[in-house]
Design a protein around this nucleic acid. Sequence first.
DNA 1: GGTAACTGGGTTTTT
DNA 2: CCCAGTTACC
Length: 700
Amino acid sequence: MFASLAPASLPGPSGPTCGAPSDGAPSDGARTGGVWADGLDDAQAAVAAHGDGPLVVLAGAGTGKTRALVARVAHLLSRGVPPERVLLLTFTRRAAEEMLWRASQLAGLDGRRRPFGGTFHAVAHRIVSAHSEVLGLPKGFGVLTPGEGADLMEIMRADFELSGTRTRAPRSATLVEVYSRCVNTRRPLSDVLAGDYPWCRPHQEAVGELFRAYTARKRAQGLLDYDDLLLYWDALLGDPAVGRHLSEAYEHVLVDEYQDLNPLQAEIVCRLAPRGRGLTVVGDEAQAVYGFRGASARHLREAVLGFPGALALRLERNFRSRQQVLDVANALRPGEAAASVTLYADRGPGQRPLLVRCADAVAEARALVDNVLAAHEAGERLNDQAVLVRASHHSDLIELELSARGVPYRKYGGLRFLETAHVKDFIAAGRLLSNPHDELSWYRLLRLHDGVGPTRARRLVAHAMAATDALEDWPSMVASADPPVRGPLSSTLALLAQARTCAAPGPAAEALVATLAPLIALRYPGQPTRTKDLQRLAGSARTATDLRSWLAELALDPPESTGDLAGPPVLDEDYVVISTIHSAKGLEWGTVHVPHMVDGFMPIDMALGSAEGVEEEQRLLYVAVTRARDRLYLYTPLRMHYHRRALDDRHGFAPESRFLTDDVRRLFEVHETGRGPLGPGAVTTEPGHRVAVDLDHLWC
DNA sequence: GGTAACTGGGTTTTT
DNA sequence: CCCAGTTACC
């Protein structure tokens, strides 16, 4: 019951349109001026028809920016710009594909000649792959998933005195964060530690050495992590011999969600489009929610000011939401950004948003599901209703309540497919087929066997590293193992060696599943589901050209649920969507429910340490609110049953979210629901009034 | 020596 | 629910 932005939730040639962005089409007066301009309003048309100078589009939520961008691409194509000279960088790969597909349709191109586009990382992968030789990379380098990067960090941590418990040492997850932040913000380790991880500073030297070793090891094994992809792309662009050629390959570069760019990505863009020539950037400062990943809306502001002759256009007419929803959004819009874009509705006033006050989280779940079902009764498909949460576990009780009352739902975000143990095992095994010197994968695969713990795994890995091809020569590998583990090991390795002889990726992947299934059955609970997951995954390998590139694609664009692999969606399947607010970006629903409007949850306690943290939380709420077309529900439980006390003590919280100021609250209709903390029928009395209780009359 | 099984403490957001 | 530390077994 987990999922993420499934293809079904995006518009396209097929599938339901739930959660899909509305078209952003003006409701009045279609325009003339070429097929690309059909149905655009003036502001959108100006975006589409702009020439070659730098263009910055400040596009509020729901203002039809996708439509404008699609029209712009179509306009460029119809003007004679060859498709392959247009590059579109977006936040998700699906957004890119959808936009490029629509643009090619609009421009009347056949599907085979399409502009190039995708996420920064996906595009980086394509470009780095094409230039692996000059970068000194093996031809088929592997792409490390973030989880694998953390595993590698974890293994190496011990060697750098960072795993003891004498003093608090950074965990592998923290190390990965720090590493990534250094790369993406282009700041030295000392800076990042001092600014963002002060408690790690005593370990600075060890961390630095660990990072050096981590880099060296990746390089030695032909592995690139997400950060490396950007770093290598940037290096190519900065190279005197290749750089110019690479950036001149594109006449036009369009970048979506520019407020979420980090410094490394911003540098890449600058190198792709020197002085902003042929550059279009689209963004909304009020929707900047990736500060934790090193992103900064500074780049959007600098784009407006920094490129010579840049034209800034605003999209403020909102085609998605009713005015009363937008009133809330405008009230929540952080101060500085409020000056730049104020939304007004194209669709009339609509219903007043509802603020639902409940006793606690249990009552909240009950009230929320009541409202979901009431809306459903009134004709709103479950598909067109979403529960948007700050952190994945905030929906725990709601999920329970939905299940108990038989309401189907799908959860997006949260635990990711690629992070589940059995999928990691599968990927490790797959990697070994093409690279028998992949230490990390060996380690993972070996640990899967009964009787193989850290020590034996290490010894066996050492053997594999010393061998020319440990998979080819698996009998000697088995011979080097301790007697008790030889049996299971030899059967796995024999099967694996055999899997390698499969020429096509499909059969190879299936052979891998067959090899792993028994091991996984022994190791983890929930066997049938896990094997089915892997079989589905293997099924998707059939269309790939080779196993290695299939694995790299998988690392970059993972199916976020088994649902993604299940084939075309069933049309009448109707379910409520539960999503993190981050994953909900760019989507919309008729009805949006936002639970846990309590300080410590929204805003989340982790973010309260700094003013910037709180501001980002506010923008996140802004994003959540602007997902709603017609009905918006915010829920404030008055008591949270866990760790409220600790939070109160530390931060002196008000009971409800600090974002529900009087100005914001005024925009809502307030509902009290269920029993308050005082129980039903509680009476407020004059101070000093006492009720007499006769405890003795029975004993007279 | 090495691994498995048990127990207790902490849990954001994602390309 | 996942990770680290502890203890009990081979």
